[in-house]
């Protein structure tokens, strides 16, 4: 590998995890109450994908990481202020809704077109990264759909590890049932990798990286083309927060012995 990888990461913004989510009906379909006001973060799985991409790019000289993101421009700008300090990247922004209720197929059409339009795109070097799911739609399908549209037929989901082998083949670990990984070796790019959590810690904020990234990120945001996506042929019959409130019995003054007995009895019941 002399020229390095072109790693394209697909990922958008989701509400910051502790926010209270409540659905509301809008003329455009279901949405979140106060969606514009909810603090946002880069989708956690996409973030793992981005950090893995940066890690891989740092190991393979000549590699480049491009983040392709479809979301409301203002939210993307806000989230980039946190993300762009973490890893070196180029941003391609598409200005459209990032809510979970938009249809994955419509989003995939936009994203695939944006990837195809990347200057100097070379399939022989392309690794398409993203989260295996998202914290918004949570369907785990957009990345595959984009991969199909780009005719990439080596796809992996629930990836926790990638390793470059001698000769350029890539060993990939995917999560499968029972807490195990399926190990595959793909001859090389192009490939689609939907990341689970991987094992890298979140990179520290590095203002130098931020300074360098922002010279490209701000113009990219300003250039972001409108990418309206909706709910196409989906008819939502109902959208609701499941009732999850339980009547909690709080046991305060029992001894460890008493508690242990009660718990063991509970565990043993069928």
């Amino acid at each position: 590998m002399t020229a390095g990888y072109q790693i394209v990461v697909l990922g958008s913004v989701v509400p910051d995890p502790l926010q209270t989510l409540e659905p509301v009906a809008t003329p455009q379909g279901p949405a979140l109450k106060n969606e514009a006001m909810l603090p946002a973060v880069l989708d956690p799985w996409a973030a793992h994908a981005l950090f893995e991409a940066a890690n891989l790019a740092a190991k393979v000289p000549g590699s480049k990481v491009t983040l392709v993101s479809l979301g409301p421009k203002a939210k993307l700008q806000q989230v980039m202020m946190a993300v762009a300090q973490k890893v070196p990247l180029e941003l391609v922004a598409l200005d459209g809704p990032a809510g979970g209720f938009t249809d994955a197929h419509e989003v995939a059409v936009r994203l695939a077109a944006a990837v195809k339009a990347l200057p100097g795109l070379d399939r022989g070097r392309l690794l398409l990264f993203g989260g295996w799911e998202s914290a918004s739609r949570g369907a785990g399908v957009t990345l595959q759909l984009v991969g199909e549209r780009l005719e990439i037929h080596d796809q992996f989901q629930g990836v926790d590890q990638i390793a470059v082998q001698a000769g350029g083949a890539l060993e990939i670990l995917e999560r499968v049932e029972g807490g195990k990984h399926q190990v595959s070796v793909v001859a090389g790019p192009p490939a689609v990798l939907g990341w689970a959590t991987g094992s890298l810690p979140e990179p520290k904020n590095n203002p130098q990286i931020g300074m360098a990234n922002m010279r490209q990120v701000m113009p990219a945001l300003q250039r972001a083309p409108a990418a309206p996506v909706g709910t196409a042929g989906v008819e939502f019959l109902s959208v609701a927060v499941p009732k999850a409130q339980r009547e909690t019995r709080i046991v305060k003054d029992a001894s460890p012995d008493e508690i242990a007995r009660e718990l063991v009895e509970w565990i043993s019941q069928d």
Partner: peptide
Amino acid sequence: GAQVMSTGAVQIWPGT
């Protein structure tokens, strides 16, 4: 913040 940043002339870094 959005007005300021959209000028592209200054950078604001939260979490720092």
